[in-house]
Amino acid sequence: MNLLRVTTGLVAAALALAGCTGSAAGNSGTSVKETPAGQESVRETPPADSSASQQPNQTPENQAPSDGGTPQNDQPARLSKQEVLTLVKKAYSAQELLRTESPIPVKKVRTTLEPWFSPEWIETFIKTAGQQDGNNWIDHADSLMGHIIDYSAPYVKDVRLSWSKDNKKVWISGVIYWEGQSRVEVTTTVQHTDKGWKISEINYK
């Protein structure tokens, strides 16, 4: 009888121990299932990392260049030396055309020079390179003032070009000997405008 009681007690203890172990294992399994490591890493990704990864797409395409110049989409391509020489030669030919007719209507002077010169310089040319008589204009044939030179001509010496940092201006200089004697350095400014490249100034020294 005593042996039966001991055996029954051992069985009961074993069953109780098995129940506790199963409960502990069940609780542990529930905890892992609710907090998978993978899901936590996705939810807890810092917002700063997300925004940082998007910054390259948010950078404006017309951001100012590092040299402090104009926005890239407003910055013209640099004119080559040959392009400058060609433009200046056409401007020179236009001015020379005005010398073949005198007097000439002021309106014709403006329309002849308009493709190559800025409006401001055209008015300067009218005042300094000739004289106005009513609606007509008479060229000062013996004066260099107001006139451009053909920098590609063989008589022009020491031709030099320089560009502004934003490529919107080009300066071309050359030396001539006016009437074969007086040394004159002529510097022409070619400037980019909303109507294309125009000659905006001519200096003599």
Rank of each mutant, 00 (worst) to 15 (best):
T30F: 12
K157D: 11
K195Y: 07
R110H: 09
N203F: 06
L10I: 15
V190H: 03
K33T: 13
T188W: 04
V175L: 08
S182E: 13
K90Q: 15
P115H: 06
Q75H: 04
S152F: 04
S143W: 10
P103K: 01
I126G: 04
A153S: 07
T112M: 09
I126W: 02
A16Q: 07
H192L: 03
E179P: 00
A37N: 13
V88Q: 09
Q72W: 04
S143F: 10
S118D: 08
G196Q: 05
S164D: 06
N62K: 03
L15W: 05
T86Q: 12
E40K: 15
I199R: 06
Q82L: 13
P105N: 07
S23R: 10
I104S: 09
E114Y: 05
T111M: 03
P115L: 04
T112I: 05
K108F: 03
T111L: 06
G130T: 00
L161D: 06
S28P: 00
Q72H: 07
L4V: 11
V170T: 10
A18S: 11
G22H: 05
S51A: 15
G130S: 04
V106F: 02
H192C: 04
D49T: 13
Q191N: 09
I172F: 02
G9V: 05
A24P: 00
L113G: 04
H140K: 13
T128D: 08
N136L: 11
N136W: 01
E179R: 13
E114S: 13
I122K: 03
A91F: 04
R43N: 12
S66Q: 11
G174Y: 04
V159N: 02
L85D: 07
N135P: 09
Q95T: 00
G19H: 09
L144E: 02
P46M: 07
V170D: 04
E201R: 13
V42C: 02
V184C: 00
T124S: 14
L4G: 05
V88T: 14
L4N: 11
S23N: 10
G68S: 05
W116L: 06
N135M: 10
K81F: 04
P56V: 08
L3D: 15
Q181P: 00
E61W: 08
T128F: 05
D139Q: 12
L87R: 11
L144M: 11
S66R: 10
T7M: 12
Q55R: 12
G69A: 03
G26H: 13
W171L: 14
I122E: 02
Q58D: 12
G196K: 05
D166W: 03
V184Y: 00
V106A: 12
T30N: 10
D49S: 12
W163L: 01
V159Y: 01
Q63T: 15
N62R: 01
H147N: 11
P56D: 07
E101G: 04
Q191I: 06
A37Y: 10
G26E: 09
I199E: 02
L3S: 11
D74V: 07
R160S: 12
L98T: 01
A25K: 08
T7V: 14
